[in-house]
Design a protein around this nucleic acid. Structure first.
Lengths: 196, 196
DNA sequence: ACCTGAACACCGTTCAAGT
DNA sequence: ACCTGAACACCGTTCAAGT
């Protein structure tokens, strides 16, 4: 016994994501992913439990990409200068832009983020990044969880809509301004405590 | 020539939606829908152009349900009394609750709303309802379109997330409070003009 | 340990044919 | 006009078998 592995879990997920990028989510298929890697469909089952687990793996890859991009953009948020962001919100804005970036790089796969629970380590990392930003914003500890859910959902929903072409009737400049306005809304909500 | 129709477009869409409700979106299948109606898969092609058009039809049905529920809840918004909503926002709040209601009735199908452009008459009707609410809220005409996109996206994203089980780790009371807070955020954004 | 081959019950969609 | 039947190239997944 003992045989050198031809494919790895990462290779499988990368091939699946690439397939989604090039030909849409509906062509992410055990047969097609196998074809990409020069392997029979059944060889994939050693690395993912099922087609569903494959899609969960794609979600994992997307979340990893989001947090990586966010980290690299942390010092240089697009439009930071003219937008006069307060220092506390830099990490949140970086994460928002990273989500939108990722949505545009993987428009077909991105909506999976809204559709799947996401309890993987990568999901936790993304959530923790939002937590850190909110804490720095001065939010009381007992509103962190709720604020995280609402902020993440708002940005995710926007990015997924854009990626899926729900705003396709409008120019990119219009959508960019929409996004800036969404960030203004979130800033407003986070800095205005509930009425007594 | 001339033969009495056995099935109609509405029957096809209703069967498809029912199938999604009972067994998930992945079991909405030309073969399965045909089976539901006692007909071969090919008989469906007279009423919908393709599988994709069938899914668009489901979106149409969902949007129709949203606007119908909103209209019936318009006078009696849940929690209107203790929430002290201003009169102007009643239609918007009714629509928000209608969306969440519809998401819970059709959790598997609902995420389609975020994924498909929606340029059908039913989509226009839903959009017009939001427009009317925003106008009544006193929004200037040139911010209506943007506000409509952001409000709709926020509520849609929340409802889709809940339906898809993204908040499954939390009690219904927690999610209800999340939703109330989301409405507070939107109210805040709509009543606070951009800084000069 | 890792991959293959054959097989099964399904898909979406076409085309020609029935009534 | 509306539906059927046979057919095609695909699916996801199983099981036993090869190295």
């Amino acid at each position: 016994v003992g045989r050198t592995a031809q494919i790895s879990r990462e290779a499988v997920l990368a091939a699946a994501l690439g397939l989604a990028d090039e030909a849409g989510l509906e062509s992410v298929t055990m047969h097609a992913v196998g074809r990409c890697l020069g392997v029979t469909p059944m060889a994939l089952y050693r690395h993912v439990d099922s087609k569903n687990a494959l899609l969960d793996g794609i979600v994992e890859a997307l979340l990893t990409e989001v947090t990586e991009i966010a980290a690299s953009h942390y010092d240089a948020v697009p439009g930071a200068a003219e937008d006069s962001h307060a220092a506390w919100e830099a990490p949140l804005v970086a994460l928002a832009y990273a989500m939108r970036d990722t949505a545009r790089r993987h428009p077909a796969a991105f909506p999976l983020l809204l559709t799947r629970p996401a309890v993987t380590p990568a999901a936790r990392a993304a959530r923790d990044a939002v937590y850190a930003g909110l804490r720095e914003a001065g939010l009381p500890a007992d509103s962190l969880a709720r604020a995280e859910r609402l902020v993440s959902t708002a940005i995710l929903g926007f990015a997924a809509s854009e990626a899926a072409g729900r705003f396709a009737a409008h120019d990119k400049t219009v959508i960019d301004a929409d996004f800036a306005e969404l960030l203004r809304w979130l800033r407003l909500a986070l800095t205005t405590p509930p009425a007594p």
